[in-house]
Amino acid sequence: MAININNLQSNPQVKNDKVEQNVQRQQTTVQQNATQQAAQQGAQRQDSVSITPQAKQFTKLQEKANAASGIDQEKVDKIKQAIAEGKYKVNVEQLARRIMQFEGDLFKK
Rank of each mutant, 00 (worst) to 15 (best):
R45K: 13
E20T: 10
D47F: 10
L61R: 15
A38Y: 03
V92C: 01
A38R: 05
D72G: 07
N7E: 06
E93G: 05
V49R: 05
S10R: 04
Q81T: 09
P53E: 01
A82P: 02
K89P: 04
I51S: 09
Q46R: 15
A67K: 03
V30P: 03
N33P: 00
N7G: 01
F102Y: 14
K78G: 05
G70Q: 06
T28R: 14
Q46C: 01
Q46P: 00
S10Y: 05
F102N: 06
K60R: 14
Y88A: 08
A43P: 00
N66G: 10
Q54G: 06
N33G: 11
V23F: 12
M1G: 00
D77C: 02
N22Y: 09
M100I: 13
Q101V: 12
Q24A: 12
G86T: 00
I5Q: 05
V14L: 03
D47Q: 15
K75C: 02
S50Q: 08
V19M: 12
V14N: 01
E63G: 11
A38I: 06
N6L: 08
G86C: 01
L95V: 14
M1C: 07
F58V: 13
R98Y: 12
N33M: 13
A84N: 14
D47L: 15
F58Q: 11
D77Y: 03
N7Q: 05
A96H: 06
V90P: 01
A65T: 08
R25W: 02
N11A: 02
Q32M: 03
K78A: 07
Q37G: 08
R97F: 09
Q94K: 13
K15N: 05
K109W: 12
S10M: 07
A2P: 03
K87F: 08
M1D: 07
K15I: 03
V49D: 00
A38C: 05
A38T: 05
Q27Y: 04
Q57Y: 11
Q44H: 07
Q41D: 12
A39S: 11
I83Y: 11
P12C: 04
K64E: 14
E20W: 05
F107R: 08
N11V: 00
N4P: 01
I3K: 10
G104A: 09
E93M: 05
V23K: 11
I3W: 09
V92Y: 06
D77H: 01
K18L: 13
A2M: 04
I79E: 03
S69A: 09
L8D: 06
L61P: 02
E93H: 09
A43L: 03
I5D: 04
Q31S: 04
Q81F: 03
Q73R: 12
R45T: 08
S69H: 09
S69L: 06
K75S: 07
T29S: 15
I99R: 15
I71E: 14
M1S: 09
D17Q: 14
M100Q: 14
Q46H: 10
T59L: 03
K60L: 14
E103L: 14
A43R: 11
G104V: 06
E103D: 15
